[in-house]
Design a protein around this nucleic acid. Sequence first.
DNA 1: TGTGCCGGGCA
DNA 2: TGCCCGGCACA
Length: 387
Amino acid sequence: MAAVGSRAGLDTMGIDGQDGLVYMQCCGQGEGVQKKLNAGSATTDWSVDANTQQTNLMSFPRSSGMDLPYRSPESVEMDEIMAAMVLTSLSCSPVVQSPPQKDLLPGDMECCGGDLSDSGSSGYWSWDHGNVSPAPSPSVNEMDRSPGRPTDEGLHMELDQGACEEPEARRCKSLSRGAYRCLWPGCGKVLTSRVGMKRHIRILHLGGGSEQSHREEDFYYTEVSSEDEDTAPSSPAPSFSSGAWTSCSSTQSQDTTVLSSPLSQSAPSSVWQIHTEHLYQACSPIQVTLSPGSPTFCSWTPPGDVQQKPQIPAPRSRSVSVGEQWLQRNSTSTRSHTISASPSRGHCSFRKGRGEAKKCRKVYGVERRDQWCTACRWKKACQRFPD
DNA sequence: TGTGCCGGGCA
DNA sequence: TGCCCGGCACA
């Protein structure tokens, strides 16, 4: 039975005779599932218990010299039944059985499965055929989650990861009908799966699965969707956000197009928010969005877009202070100058030399402090008269 | 010494 | 998050 199961679902099942550990590795994915068995007790919280261990001992030679206790025929039969159940459930996964290296057809795996692939598992565990729950998980996972059983750290990591991402995957699918277009010169292939697109880029264009190419995949595809195309030209703010950016800000852009992207979720909060609310920290947007180490849509956005789009003033419902309102009305041009000049300031800790422009303090004087811009009142970099 | 503003604290 | 201020750098 175990041998049959080995072909069906399990590639390797190793046993540590010292600790009673059984290592199961599914389909060679490197996603080792480590089970610590109660070798001595007959508790059946997890079906593959000591009996199963002994079954495994029958099929897999072990190097240790542990004595094998006598096993009754009933026990052997029960072992076979248990092993059959476990292995059958494991082998039921279509993803497990499918070859991992081919290009995924559209619809194979939806968006958020790509998160898993970043960790090197290439999304093999991101079974995502619609909302169908993963086939092998009910038997194994439910048994793993049963109370009274020693906590399996490694497996819990997998389970937690899946538990955390599955709602997100559903949310992605419910909110976005996006597709992913390969930006590789001359390719332009469109896939509905981020994982598929990543794999497409990695295999066909980057030529392998090296660590670097793993990170570079994000640069060679873009997200396209009908929603995006519909809403993009409507107003400056959505065109600036363009999905990835809107999803970056969880608090302020709920009314805009939401094209949820795992990459964009890891991106910093929106430049728009930074520019409008904390302009005196204007060095942040440039450094953040152009950071070469962050493989996000934000990085992929051409620098020109990053610097130009936030300059477009857009009406916002946010309550602003008097100074900021004045700033929004009058200093759009100077703001763009500030943004473009902010890299010269370098890191925020670098204190730039004093500029020539008069500040609010000089213009209005201390006695008219209420007319200062907000930043000046807060002893921040002047917004109204930036250098 | 005055000014600009970073960094941090407070509510 | 908004607001304020100590303290530092610079002119």
